[in-house]
Design a protein around this nucleic acid. Structure first.
Lengths: 140, 140
DNA sequence: GTAAATGCAAAGCGTTTGCAGTCGA
DNA sequence: TCGACTGCAAACGCTTTGCATTTAC
């Protein structure tokens, strides 16, 4: 949390009440991938007058500082998670039954990445999403 | 094209002039991934009064029949391509410079898929997107 | 003839922006 | 103090929907 405060200050950004609340929400949601709407709902329990625009602006700022990681699955909306929790987890399994998202180990694609680089590309990032039925939904 | 007509008729759907035009556009765009807007623009050269709603409805129908393949990259919109051209090409390299999309061979992920299945999931589909600078943009 | 498909316009959703007022450093 | 931030509402881009009209079979 101190490290986050530092990062904000370095950029001449302010740690407002709203940002604290949003950060709390994100940290409590360890392992989940929240939409802006979900963040708003949770954060309003602490800060009822919070507006959706502030949520978006905050999430965007935190993502650009590398505090949050922003991703988009096969939906029309973005999802956010703490960057340290995500730690390069750009690989997910999305359950087509319940919509939950599971993590997949990093480094699975190192070989493929090298191959692409050898074809003349400069790989910057990658994302793998597997669509599956999770064990729970499968048994229902 | 006959095979497409057949598929439409099986579902009691009609091969209208608009659908033919849209199919033509998609077939001429071999290897490209078009947005609805791009399809509209191209199709209007043949059918000037064509509306965007028809494009969406047609693309949706064709995708649900397996004639088109619909995907979403890290943008706010969908892209479509002929399913036979895509032939399981759910793997792409998207250039962060020019936005162009390159294909990646299928089957790269078979090993990973097996592993996930062994963890109790039932894998249905998967998608890999690599973000990179393409050789051309890299040299600029 | 009749069900399906069209074009238009309006509404939907997630997201962004403009602006006057507020607040943190 | 003063620039960053907020809340609100209006606008945005992509997509979907309602409805009266047209069209394919």
């Amino acid at each position: 949390m101190d490290f986050i405060k530092e990062k904000l200050e370095q950029g001449e950004y302010r740690l407002t009440r709203q940002r604290q609340v949003i950060l709390d929400v994100m940290q409590e949601a360890e392992g989940e991938h929240l939409t802006a709407e979900e963040v708003l709902l949770a954060a309003r329990r602490q800060s009822p007058r919070l507006g959706i625009a502030t949520v978006y602006r905050t999430l965007e700022r935190l993502a650009s500082l590398g505090i949050l990681y922003k991703s988009r699955f096969d939906e029309g909306k973005h999802r956010y998670e703490m960057a340290d929790a995500s730690q390069h987890h750009h690989h997910h399994i999305q359950c087509v039954g319940c919509g939950r998202i599971f993590e997949l180990a990093e480094g699975l694609l190192d070989g493929i990445e090298n191959e692409v680089n050898q074809q003349g590309f400069a790989v910057i990032n990658h994302r793998l999403t597997i669509y599956a039925m999770c064990p729970q939904c499968k048994s229902e």
